[in-house]
Design a protein around this nucleic acid. Sequence first.
DNA 1: CAGCTTTGTATGTTTACTAAACATTCTTAC
DNA 2: GTAAGAATGTTTAGTAAACATACAAAGCTG
Lengths: 391, 391
Amino acid sequence: MSTTTPSARPGLTPLSTRAKATRGQTRTNNLRLALQIIFSDSPTSRASVARASRLTPATASDLVDELLDLGLVMETGTGPSAGGKPPKLIAPNPEGRSIIALDISSSLFHGAVVDLSGEIVTTRSILGNTGDAAIAVVADLISELAVSSPAPLLGVGIGTPGVVDVPAGLVTSANLGWHDAPVAAELARATDAPIHITNDAQAAALHEYSVHAPAVASLALVQVGRGIGTGHVLDGHLFQGENAATGEIGHVRLDDGGKRCSCGNTGCLETVASMSALLEKVGGDQTVSHDRIAEVAEDPAAESAIEAAAVALGRGLAPMVALFANREIVLWGEVTSLGETYRRIVEREIRSRVLPVNTEQIQVRYGTAGDDAVIRGAAALVLSSELGVVW
Amino acid sequence: MSTTTPSARPGLTPLSTRAKATRGQTRTNNLRLALQIIFSDSPTSRASVARASRLTPATASDLVDELLDLGLVMETGTGPSAGGKPPKLIAPNPEGRSIIALDISSSLFHGAVVDLSGEIVTTRSILGNTGDAAIAVVADLISELAVSSPAPLLGVGIGTPGVVDVPAGLVTSANLGWHDAPVAAELARATDAPIHITNDAQAAALHEYSVHAPAVASLALVQVGRGIGTGHVLDGHLFQGENAATGEIGHVRLDDGGKRCSCGNTGCLETVASMSALLEKVGGDQTVSHDRIAEVAEDPAAESAIEAAAVALGRGLAPMVALFANREIVLWGEVTSLGETYRRIVEREIRSRVLPVNTEQIQVRYGTAGDDAVIRGAAALVLSSELGVVW
DNA sequence: CAGCTTTGTATGTTTACTAAACATTCTTAC
DNA sequence: GTAAGAATGTTTAGTAAACATACAAAGCTG
């Protein structure tokens, strides 16, 4: 026991062991490992899986056979010889399972069926609602998508605004009129598939992570649109906190006094750094949309307002960088239409407010995903929760 | 594989599997589990270990036998019968291993030999130094303590001020005149025992956690003395970040303008909320010590200065609470001598600046440990790193 | 075509958890 | 004071899953 294997990466050191380990868990771990290798290096071979996993060829072969039996992967023919017997190629089986992914963070609820290769197969949108009716709308959306699903359901993933209590399955969202709404329990009556709910910013963070993993192990996604919220992947783990109200940085009061915020308080970060706040200052059409923000970005008269919003955001993010020692800070939401000038001011402002040791390696950039980041992140949540795999 | 065992606690969802699992790891995990149970419920019995671990009596018995062989636990006689054969009691063997723990965060370097029951067996202090000489002093301290160690060394734990790059073993500290100093590598020449270095606030957080685990799974320790720094345990994991500069909240710039800080910047949280800042405002003896701070706490003339410091700290901590959704916020350092009024203002200020959903359950309290928290935390770091156990 | 390389499988071993029976030693009830 | 019962802990046999080794299959290279 003295020769402890150190955790593969630094960052989060587990302090003690909590549950027994069994052969079955060993097997599950290795099945997931093999599946991840196949997802990452597709198409690949049994021999490659053995090399990448450091398992023996016999074990790797056996694992692949079990994954074939489960329908999660498939043989796709024969590959080129590397000086010997040519490999039988193994790849994810897109039609092995379906994932239903939902984004209910805007007034239109968006849903999709996603296959195991991460492709969106079907989409459907319904006008949203609030309160209990909203849950009913979501349940309908799931049922409709389930009918069109071409494969057994792996699970349902939902990205919602507000705060999610994951273990209890409760959601609190002002927009949706939910206060500790038992969304998971209600939806469980609409489908047998496991349901995974997360905050929209966390879903987007997960998607961003899955695009860049494993090169990037940690990142902070900062959603700036009508409001401001963050989602965090720390050392390959989605950080959801004890009561899941993590990343609610938009409602931190920066200034005493200050404008009144939708939360009832005054001087929140959102009142100075959100895109709503920017539009309020600029005047004209107040609809927070990519088009409208892009319009503002081009407007010379808006220059100082944009700078003020950028400075405020940088100021709000500085403590985050000091606490998490983030390297990757991804801006996402309507803010992505503001362009390079804005981004540079945010980065400069963070740098000027935090120790150099924390900012030497930071990178502030816009998210690579478009409007489907929440949907794709919700699907990624199901994939990682059910199969332990990241696209 | 579809029947995934959900992680025992929420908070940190692992996204994918990174390394193969083997029988050996199963065994190691279960040895650690058994050891943790014995540490937590000492004295206990083989049958109790089986029940608590959910392993079969045969396996639990075998694990305990191996722990006995390793000298980590011992039989301490026979316990009272519970209606049948009385148990042979099992307890940690205090003399099974020794841990050398160091606190080099003040001008006097403190060292101790700690036994496996967490008792401090020997202490020694040497006047510290800076630069390469400081490393030499630390090496001497380790050697001296190693000589007086009554048992085989489990490892050396060090709590240092500044920033630690754990994987590389580098330390950067203004106080000690270290910039990426290869402390781990240098000390490895003084001892064969594994060396674990962490930030002083993180060490204190670890100690605080070990006092309250497993009732508390996460906590933030806020060290307020000459400077301000935080250490975080998240869901039973010590959070050290990617480049380990986590928790450096003292040097976040709150106000443009503001006083000059030791870091070279202006307006840092430390310049308004540290105990140095408080003393500067109050006048008189400027030595940051418990006695001096207690004196200030009693001084009616200092009331407004204390309130200002408390307000500033609460303001600085608000983003932390919003991001981590902390429930337990532990104040530690010389600040603990400021008393209840100060604590209450800090708590009030945090509550007024963050969403209610984040503050409903928070508790701001003073640390339970005294000046030996860093030493004890450094020892706990060794114990958890080498044996996977928390006291 | 011989020899080498790579892929993949087959056979048997080892490790460590499980299951079930049992031995041991105490308490309780009659 | 003896029998029944209960809790502790061990023994024996069984099994899952990784490992070690050998080897078959299928290609490339000279």
